[in-house]
């Protein structure tokens, strides 16, 4: 960093972080050449349509893909964090399509 200099150890972590992110970003730019076909090895974050711009190429129905997708963190949006805080969120619901009513709701403490 040119205009900001890290003084304490915490600040130095930021510096290292910034360096790391710069490095990985440079690597990732190369990877985006391949066409985005959802669930290929290269993540294309933010894709909500298939490569034709529709949804027929995505998993159908979307519930069927819930466990396959969110559990490995392929699809982290709009579901409770199952990596750290809410591991058992979906345990009562054996089949997302059939038993969706048994999915737990998560509320912040105090509400």
């Amino acid at each position: 960093m040119k205009h900001v200099r890290a003084l304490n150890k915490k600040a130095r972590l930021f510096e290292e972080n910034a360096e790391q992110r710069k490095k990985t970003r440079d690597e990732d730019v190369v990877a985006l050449q391949a066409p985005s076909l959802g669930c290929s090895l290269i993540f294309d974050p933010g894709w909500e349509t298939d490569s034709a711009g529709g949804v027929t190429g995505l998993c159908q129905p979307v519930e069927a893909d819930l466990y396959g997708c969110y559990d490995d963190c392929w699809w982290p949006a709009q579901v409770p964090d199952q990596l750290t805080n809410h591991l058992t969120w979906s345990d009562s619901c054996a089949s997302a399509e059939r038993d969706w009513r048994k999915l737990d709701l998560i509320y912040p403490e105090g509400t």
């Binding site: 205009h3 900001v4 200099r5 890290a6 003084l7 304490n8 915490k10 600040a11």
Partner: peptide
């Protein structure tokens, strides 16, 4: 010039521009 970021207790020095 210096800046202290309370959320993470980080201390930085700034140049004039910053």
């Amino acid at each position: 010039s210096y800046v202290f970021v309370p959320a993470v207790t980080a201390i930085f020095g700034l140049d004039e521009l910053g």
